[in-house]
Design a protein around this nucleic acid. Sequence first.
DNA 1: CGACCTACTTTGCGATGCAAAGCAGACCGT
DNA 2: ACGGTCTGCTTTGCATCGCAAAGTAGGTCG
Lengths: 120, 120
Amino acid sequence: MALADADEGRFSYEGLDRTIHEKARLGVLTSLVGHPKGLPFPDLKRLCNLTDGNLSRHLAVLQEAGLVSLQKGHAHNRPQTLCRLTPAGRARFLEYLAVLERVVRDAAEAAGPAPDLKTA
Amino acid sequence: MALADADEGRFSYEGLDRTIHEKARLGVLTSLVGHPKGLPFPDLKRLCNLTDGNLSRHLAVLQEAGLVSLQKGHAHNRPQTLCRLTPAGRARFLEYLAVLERVVRDAAEAAGPAPDLKTA
DNA sequence: CGACCTACTTTGCGATGCAAAGCAGACCGT
DNA sequence: ACGGTCTGCTTTGCATCGCAAAGTAGGTCG
């Protein structure tokens, strides 16, 4: 079997949006998808183990891409930025996840056919 | 519940090795993990929808990282580079996959508990 | 009222992905 | 036998991007 036409681009994974497909941003989005009410900057920072500068930069990128909304306000006499996933952001993240799931399944099945499924 | 200590770094995903966590390389590795005997350059190129230059560069990176081995020879009077996953490469790819799986599961369960499981 | 703390933003640089151009050998027509 | 074209791969150049270090603003505490 010498590489069928149908296999062209079989593993190109075009759906892996660069904006999302990034260690730090992936963590941020995963954090946010579980918190519909949003998360404050410092919490996000701790959850993702990011430095201030780093998180700031990534949030800016995500905001420009329309994936998250940043609501800058004050709470307890301190500046507080509340980060949430936008509806579009949620949608795009879920699409991305679907692709990621395909990657995992592709790889798992290629690595060892029926690995956890007691092969019998 | 104001962010327990245990949640520190919960979503940092340190295991997402930059060398592997890359659209193109991810495709290459997934292709290779299913072909223990290796794949020739042109096949890989088509499978991953990559340009020559691109694939060349990524393979060089993967080789330097010790994840793949490149066997340059000739077949049918043509140069032919055969690419395979090294044992170490396979191991590291599988580790990476485990983390990726955690990402998917984390996100899926955060996004909507039991999404495809007809919720009851 | 001055030293430190939290909450961010900005700057600078090194690394990297990507595409266009380059190179070498094989095949093909005449 | 030789000019052109094709395949197979490498190199170069640039524009982007992640990351860390430094910077800013305002609040709190001694």
